[in-house]
Amino acid sequence: MNFLLSFWRSTVGTKVVVAVTGLLLLGFTLFHMIGNLQVFSGPEEMDSYGAFLHKPEILWGGRAVVGTSMVLHVWGTMKLVRQTAAARPEGYRKWTAQASTFYSRTMKFTGPIVLIYFVVHLLNLTTGAEPGHIALHPNYLQTNGVPKAFENLTALLSNPLWASFYIVANLALGVHLFHGAYSMCKTLGLSGQRQLRLARVIAAALTFTVVGGNIAITLACVLQLVK
């Protein structure tokens, strides 16, 4: 296992771990968003979807994958950020960006915002399902440990403050995903010019889909289009 350890210790190895976990998390956000589109189909579909997610193998399997990915993604990033900070102890008085973008340069800010979003989202709509756990929700409802997904979601997002939080967080997520998805391709070794152009288009499309879907759901709830 030494080789895994030395892989992790190298910057390229850590980057690859961050990229692979990022890919898993991207997949998670995409499927999560698609699942949540059930809200437009009404309470029954949404709740049965929620019940499906609460099958123990799916629930715990999903939590293991997402949780591990999240931990490694954040841990790896923090390790890299620390190394980067040490790599230039004295900064420039002047520094003019050349090719780096708003997206690439704000990763270190959008990352923590997405992390906070992730935690808050769990506290909003998941942890309440476990008795005695903290829940950030106006009126959390569940039956036999299975949350009433539709009501919980619409109740939360009909509050304009929560809805604004979700919209802002999703914009940050979008910025993060766009650079992340494209950058991950390079980190994982995609080097052809044509392939990279394609990767950029796919990254933009995925970002637009995830963020667009999430914001659409939020807007639908806050504008009381679904009840």
Partner: peptide, 27 residues
Amino acid sequence: GHCTNHSDCEAVCPKGISVTNIAMMNR
């Protein structure tokens, strides 16, 4: 430090060396 694919390096490289080399290095 490590590479986060900003590509500022490529922009100032006097010999125009491409960042795609970095992807090959990672692979």
